Amino acid sequence: MKEIFRAIAWYVKGLMGEDAYQKYRAHQLAAHPGQPIMTERQFWRDHADRQDANPQGRCC
């Protein structure tokens, strides 16, 4: 039963974009080793700034 809830939580987090920082971090480590990585706070601030500067169609 726990596995079902974990799978649902994983899916919802992916759908909502909550895993964006983890994806960014994994990409940076793999593709740009040795380069500085933004903190999670910096990442979300940058993400919000980019969305404000380049608005695109989104549901909310």
Rank of each mutant, 00 (worst) to 15 (best):
His32Phe: 10
Gly17Pro: 10
Pro55Asn: 06
Gly34Ile: 06
Phe43Thr: 03
Met38His: 02
Gln51Pro: 03
Met38Gly: 00
Gln22Asn: 14
Cys59Thr: 08
Gly57Met: 05
Asp52Leu: 15
Ala31Met: 11
Arg50Thr: 13
Glu3Ala: 13
Ala48Pro: 05
Trp44His: 14
Ala30Ser: 13
Pro33Val: 01
Arg6Met: 07
Trp10Gln: 11
Tyr11His: 13
Cys59Val: 13
Cys60Tyr: 05
Pro55His: 07
Glu40Tyr: 04
Arg6Cys: 04
Thr39Asn: 02
Met38Phe: 01
Ile37Arg: 03
Glu40Ser: 12
Lys23Thr: 02
Pro36Leu: 05
Glu3Ser: 09
Pro33Met: 04
Lys13His: 11
Gly34Phe: 04
Val12Lys: 09
Tyr21Asn: 02
Pro55Asp: 11
Asp46Arg: 14
Gln56Phe: 07
Arg58Phe: 05
Ala9Met: 11
Glu40Gln: 15
Glu18His: 14
Gly17Glu: 04
His27Asp: 11
Ile4Tyr: 00
Asp49Phe: 14
Pro33Ser: 00
Ala30Thr: 06
Ala26Asp: 10
Tyr11Val: 08
Ala26Gln: 15
Lys2Leu: 00
Arg6Asp: 05
Arg41Glu: 14
Gly14Arg: 01
Tyr11Gln: 11
Asp46Gly: 08
Asp52Val: 10
Arg6Glu: 09
Lys13Ser: 12
Pro55Gln: 10
Gln51Ser: 10
Ala53Lys: 14
Asp52Ile: 11
Ala20Pro: 02
Pro55Tyr: 07
Lys23Cys: 00
Trp44Lys: 09
His27Leu: 05
Ala31Gln: 12
Arg45Lys: 15
Asp52Met: 12
Ala53Glu: 11
Pro36Met: 04
Trp10Glu: 13
Met16Lys: 09
Met38Leu: 03
Arg6Tyr: 07
Ala31Ser: 08
Asn54Pro: 05
Gln51Tyr: 06
Trp10Met: 08
Arg45Met: 15
Ile37Pro: 04
Gln42His: 02
Phe5Gly: 01
Trp10His: 13
Cys59His: 09
Ala7Ser: 09
Gly14Ala: 02
Ile8Trp: 01
